[in-house]
Computed example of a mutant assay.
Amino acid sequence: MFNLIRRDVILQKRQLLFFIPFILFFIFTNSHPVLTFLVASIFIPFNAYAYDEKAETNLLLNSLPYTRKEIISSRYLGAVIYMILAIALSSLALFLMDKPFTIRDIAIGSGLFLTFSAFTFPLFYIFKQGYIFTIVLVSFLVLAGIGPSILLYLGTHFTPLTDFLANLSVQFLYTGAVLSGVIVYVISWSISHVIYQRKAL
Results as ranks from 00 to 15, higher is better:
L4Y: 08
Y196T: 10
F140Q: 11
L92T: 12
I103F: 14
A118M: 05
R198S: 10
G147I: 04
I20P: 00
Y131K: 07
A86Y: 01
Q15P: 03
V194D: 06
N58V: 11
A177R: 11
Y66E: 03
D98P: 01
R198K: 15
T102M: 08
P160G: 06
V178A: 09
V138G: 05
V9L: 15
F25M: 01
P45F: 10
P21N: 03
R6T: 11
T175I: 13
L141C: 10
P148W: 09
T134P: 01
F37T: 04
G78M: 05
S41C: 10
I187C: 09
E56Q: 13
V138D: 03
V170N: 13
Q171T: 14
F133K: 07
M83D: 03
L11W: 00
Y153K: 12
T29A: 02
D105S: 08
S192R: 05
L154F: 15
T162K: 12
F119D: 02
Y196W: 05
F127K: 00
S110P: 03
Q129A: 15
L17P: 11
E70D: 13
R198N: 12
R75V: 13
L152G: 03
G130M: 03
G181L: 06
Y174F: 12
T159V: 15
L60W: 10
R68V: 06
L16W: 15
R68Y: 10
V138S: 09
Q197M: 13
L24D: 01
L24C: 11
S110N: 04
